[in-house]
Design a protein around this nucleic acid. Structure first.
Lengths: 210, 210
DNA sequence: GAATGTGTGTATCAAAAGATACACAAGGTG
DNA sequence: CACCTTGTGTATCTTTTGATACACACATTC
């Protein structure tokens, strides 16, 4: 049980109220996760709220041997599943796995509602989280409902290109399939078509957009 | 511009603080919508928050000539799109249409954030709305991503049977297709298969589960 | 370099879903 | 009744997606 230091407010810069900062230092603890660590499992009850200080968490749904991405939790953000779960005593409807070595600030569930009425910046944080996750999900929902996989692959790759400002996207076909909720063979097939259409070049382990 | 009376708190029974009630009576106004009235259009900016007092609103996404249901807004509830839009000055990502003659309490956007810090019951209302809509959407997302249409039709009809405690579900094939994001022909085909499997009987304008 | 795991290409077949077109029935309206 | 709208049944064809199977290349480890 490691206590956080004031350094975390370099990352959590939106939490400005002195009382809030004191509360975080008092009730919070720091936890580490290795790449691949399972942080949240579907069905699990959570009575704490993790906020990512460093690293990234992938949150996804699973059914049989298929997966589909919901969202990533980046530095300074928290996970919707935990928030819902901690706030309402519901269980998680998704899984969360650390993508890289990740550092978490863990807060007990009871502070969420309490601080929300007391500290405007905390309230804003909670509302922002709900809103951002809802928007993400809505976007994903529309895509799955209306777009063919080909277009979704294109979109996914395009967003990665922007995100990393590199034309080369390091991802395997299997992982891409897991992000989009389909299978490896389908992804390979479509990627090959796209290569024939000259929109990208395929390599082992990465894809190069043209 | 019709001012609301105290009667609305029969519906909005969770708003207990006297100050909140006064605020609602002061800043709110009542509006009526006829069946089929378009209340929210995709892309629209909203600077008000409507709360349903009577009736029901259908919120859905649209692309080309396809539709897919997001959720219904029932008595005492508000619409996630409006909330997001009014709270954050974003535009709506969905459409809202009155399903029946509907009465709305309309509040100006600025009250949302203000009341949220001042009145716990209002805060709870806002959070509940986010949470409930997120859950709905997550469920729908998983269904679209993983379930074949046949199963989704089954689920949809089953939920209507429960909701109305009647084995007869009054819905046309076209409307059902619009709820699920597919086309009429597909729905008719699958329903016919299901009739041959003896799980339901088809009639003009309604479907009877067995 | 043999063994193993991971990543990719591809063929074949099957199932699901969509597009288009047409027939017809039921109900309401003039 | 003639007319129009809405709802349904269904055939045909195509596209998309999925399932299974197999080959092979690259990389890592022993």
């Amino acid at each position: 049980m490691v206590k956080p230091s004031k350094d975390i407010f370099k990352v959590l810069s939106s939490f400005t109220e002195p009382g809030l900062q004191t509360g975080i230092l008092e009730h919070g603890s720091l936890a580490q996760a290795k790449k691949g660590d399972v942080l949240i499992k579907e069905g699990q009850y959570l009575n704490f709220l993790p906020i990512v200080i460093k690293g990234r968490i992938r949150v996804f749904q699973e059914k049989d041997d298929r997966e589909i991405l919901l969202y990533y939790v980046a530095k300074g953000e928290t996970c919707m599943m935990s928030l819902s779960s901690a706030y309402f005593d519901y269980n998680s409807k998704a899984n969360g796995i650390a993508m890289e070595p990740t550092e978490l600030l863990v807060l007990p569930a009871f502070v969420i509602a309490e601080w929300q009425l007391r500290y405007p910046s905390w309230n804003r944080f909670i509302i922002q989280t709900f809103k951002a996750r809802y928007d993400d999900l809505l976007q994903a929902f529309g895509d799955v409902a209306f777009k063919p996989i080909q277009a979704r692959i294109k979109d996914y790759l395009a967003s990665k290109v922007t995100e990393n400002s590199s034309k080369q996207v390091a991802i395997s076909h299997q992982t891409l399939a897991n992000e989009l909720g389909t299978t490896r063979v389908v992804v390979s097939r479509i990627l090959k078509e796209m290569e024939l259409d000259k929109v990208l070049t395929l390599h082992r382990g990465y894809i190069e957009l043209t």
